[in-house]
Design a binder for these strands. Structure first.
Lengths: 154, 154
DNA sequence: TAAGATTGATATATCAATCTTA
DNA sequence: TAAGATTGATATATCAATCTTA
């Protein structure tokens, strides 16, 4: 039996602040996006990936890897986005088990409409308040924590 | 018309990493908790607040303020926790519009069972990988971003 | 068998409407 | 009227089972 090394008062405070920050940040970015363009942050993230891909085409497993979503969540989400005309699904020429997700004209228009306001919100809520060394620290932290998260999966 | 100041490549990378880190961190902490104790991270957060409160009693609006949850989400969540016997609800003596949420014996036992493993996971996934200056930076960032989020609401 | 992906059932979150009393 | 809180309907996320083909 190993005795627990609890978080000290400061660590507690930082951890709670992180939880709250992430929750509220997601909520407010979602609100802004929803109000201005009818997209959710999740929709936006999918569209960002497709926009960055050659021909606006990606396999679901690539989206899954890039976004770190669960498989079934992605599948359901893509089905909903497809119903709304934001993406389409095609057969995969190189592997007939698979499919290809494609960005539609409407999807491209949606992200182009939404992007300026969303980027402005991200700047106003986050990046405007970071000093250069803080930005570096955040990059380091995210990188290391993500590595650890991946290691913990296996 | 103001032209959009887009995120540069590095800012993009940091932002995506933050989104992924948050998503995956929550998912994996949830998994650990769920597997070890049957609690979700949300359950745990509510129980943490009640444990820290005098007599394990808080008004819903206090929980709402501390956790930064939406009102109806909190209400539904408390109803579910109540059905599972983790908390109880009582009338509020000082304001008959309101209620008081109380920690049950079972709720206290649940968080005491769950806490050691959860704290260990938080350390292993996050705090073990932070240097002292990074911890300071994170605290600063969270504080400033939370202030901005609050300001943006009004 | 395992990879790629989907599906249906269930749990949780969000939105809009409502209720009660300060 | 507004604060405190709940409710029911809907949207989204998660879990377990399934399907197809490499």
């Amino acid at each position: 039996v190993i005795s627990t090394r609890w978080l000290d008062e400061r660590e507690q405070r930082v951890w709670q602040a992180c939880l709250q920050m992430q929750r509220q940040l997601f909520a407010q970015l979602n609100h802004h996006l929803q109000a201005e363009s009818g997209l959710s942050l999740s929709d936006f993230e999918v569209l960002v990936q497709l926009t960055a891909a050659p021909d606006g085409r990606l396999r679901p497993f690539e989206l899954q890897r890039n976004l770190r979503w669960e498989q079934s969540r992605l599948s359901h989400h893509l089905a909903r986005m497809r119903r709304r005309g934001l993406v389409d699904r095609g057969e995969c020429p190189s592997d007939s088990r698979g499919t290809v997700v494609t960005l539609t004209v409407e999807g491209r228009r949606a992200i182009e409409t939404a992007a300026p306001g969303h980027v402005a919100a991200v700047r106003r809520l986050v990046f405007d308040h970071l000093t250069e060394p803080e930005l570096v620290a955040l990059e380091q932290i995210a990188g290391r924590v993500l590595d650890r998260l991946d290691a913990d999966l296996s």
